[in-house]
């Protein structure tokens, strides 16, 4: 990191952080060359700040809970089934959906960087990107789950899936008991972001 400027001594002037300067340098150079365009960047930021997020994934999960045909398709070809709801895959990665059951709990991680299913979950939370999660999710998944308040019964197998730039995972959590008769929209409201990463189990689920 660059030395800190003592900008308080020059209150009449503006100051940009070292990082801000680097980003401006990159953006203005690429703009001059016609490689990026401000409007396109603004549109991308708007999409990720306002349009994609865990609600997309929740709608996928709710649809799978109420529609067995859709669920079968989702588990067989996650990319196409998710795309059919309008959540197109980005970066050319395949989506693989992992079903939680009475006997299996799935949990996802990206040990290398932070590959994450953006179209259905938005951008990853800070802990997902952190070294402690990336390293411990593989070595001690039950310990990590415990920190998230999830005590997984011994007879439930915990499977950890390491994402890559080519494959992203979405966990299909178990439908909570007592949710019979709820419509798709109400069901989607029960689905938490973490339940689709696999660090949460929905209330009413086993264990």
């Amino acid at each position: 990191m660059a030395a800190q400027h003592d900008h308080d001594e020059h209150p009449e002037h503006s100051h940009l952080s070292d990082t801000d300067l680097r980003v401006r340098a990159l953006e203005s150079l690429l703009t001059d060359k016609g490689l990026v365009d401000t409007k396109a960047l603004t549109a991308i930021v708007d999409t990720y700040e306002n349009k994609v997020g865990p609600r997309n994934g929740a709608r996928v999960v709710a649809r799978a809970w109420v529609d067995p045909v859709y669920k079968e398709w989702l588990l067989r070809d996650g990319t196409a089934a998710i795309d059919s709801l309008g959540y197109a895959s980005t970066q050319g990665a395949d989506m693989v959906v992992l079903e939680n059951t009475d006997l299996v709990h799935n949990m996802t991680v990206c040990t290398l960087c932070s590959c994450y299913p953006w179209p259905v979950l938005g951008l990853p939370p800070a802990w997902y990107k952190s070294f402690p999660y990336r390293s411990r999710a593989v070595k001690d998944p039950r310990g990590v789950l415990k920190e998230f308040g999830q005590d997984i019964p011994e007879d439930v197998e915990v499977r950890v899936w390491d994402s890559t730039s080519e494959v992203r995972y979405l966990v299909l959590p178990e439908r909570p008991v007592g949710s019979d008769g709820m419509d798709e929209e109400a069901l989607a409201d029960l689905v938490t972001r973490n339940s689709m990463i696999g660090t949460d189990r929905l209330k009413g689920g086993r264990g």
Partner: peptide, 10 residues
Amino acid sequence: AQAFAMTVWL
């Protein structure tokens, strides 16, 4: 956000 968007765009 800008660094992210530039990457996605490029």
